[in-house]
Write a protein that binds this DNA or RNA. Sequence first.
DNA 1: TTTATATTGATACCTGGTGCCAATTCTAGA
DNA 2: TCTAGAATTGGCACCAGGTATCAATATAAA
Lengths: 204, 204
Amino acid sequence: MERLPKRQRHQELSRLIEDNPFLTDRELTRLLKVSIQTIRLDRLELAIPELRERLKVMAERSYDPVRSLPLHEVIGEVVDLQLDKSGISLFEIREEHVFSRSGIARGHHVFAQANSLAVAVINDEIALTASADIRFLRPARLGEKCIAKAYVRSGGSQKGKAKVEVCTYVGDEMVFQGYFVIYRSRAADSMESVGGEEAHENRD
Amino acid sequence: MERLPKRQRHQELSRLIEDNPFLTDRELTRLLKVSIQTIRLDRLELAIPELRERLKVMAERSYDPVRSLPLHEVIGEVVDLQLDKSGISLFEIREEHVFSRSGIARGHHVFAQANSLAVAVINDEIALTASADIRFLRPARLGEKCIAKAYVRSGGSQKGKAKVEVCTYVGDEMVFQGYFVIYRSRAADSMESVGGEEAHENRD
DNA sequence: TTTATATTGATACCTGGTGCCAATTCTAGA
DNA sequence: TCTAGAATTGGCACCAGGTATCAATATAAA
């Protein structure tokens, strides 16, 4: 590996630590072919904490039961949410989501993103999936970014059942389509006194 | 807090570190009213590693992406599998699977168990969910053990599409029912030359 | 060439330890 | 009561993996 200019070395350093936070400065000197002082200046500029601090933060995150859960809860990152109307979430297909031989995502991950979004979009204290009719239109593959769009089709504010359609795209190709029936514990209108955040189970 | 005899101090020390692995020896001296040397001898006898080692282990455990994600591969434990005929899997609803307020399992976990099983039961190199029609008949709750039973209804050995019905029970109550259409890359018969384990994507 | 920036070297100091040895204190048995 | 053995404490050297700071070079740009 060549000696890189500062800018690229910084990028490389960030990347290296990102995908192996267990690297000591000394190991980094070998990887980047610069002195240990340079590594430390770089970390300083990039605000990358020392090894022990990184380990501590990771340990804390995994120890705190509240923070260790979100991975299992809402699948995908909700980027837009108009309660009882529509929502959008992003989900990148990673190594752990695919069949290793084919690189094709296991269906339940794609479903999980859509289901999470369908539940999130319903503005209610308790919202549960009652049923769903789903189609996997084409396989989603390793590295692809899935964009799920949900629209509330009916029952947007009454108690009982709401119908939500979710379409998931990779680029402009639709990979998944699902019609969800979501059970809600009460009508959306009655929520005005409660305050959306608090009343939203799917935010925890 | 009193000075305890050695035996009880050891117990106390183990307990303290167990529920707060972030304690330094120095902090432990204050809690147990003994010198730091005693703390260290105790840790030695009890084979409790030093703080930094504890943090490192925690960080490693949480970091390993493969083992940390439950929504990763086959969800549930397959206890019976008759390829192209039927299968049974078990899945216990744990803290990380439920809405924290209600203790009700998020739908995609129940779906994931059923989907995993439906794919597993199809004896083919590549088996993908094409579509599904699912019903959540009653909520599955924290602590409940879900028993999913899958039956191949048609297409059990031809190339193309296989239909699999999966019913999930808690005790004798049915909580979930799904009809899955699974795409398979080739007919089951042609697999005899390959050997089940190797040819089975859904085992990885 | 001069200047600014980047890199390296060197040293003192920090935390949270290990390892080892000696001194002291406690405690139970003869 | 005396004493041996266990338990506790103190002290020191040393370690990894740093921080903080200052000075010396090296390199590139004006």
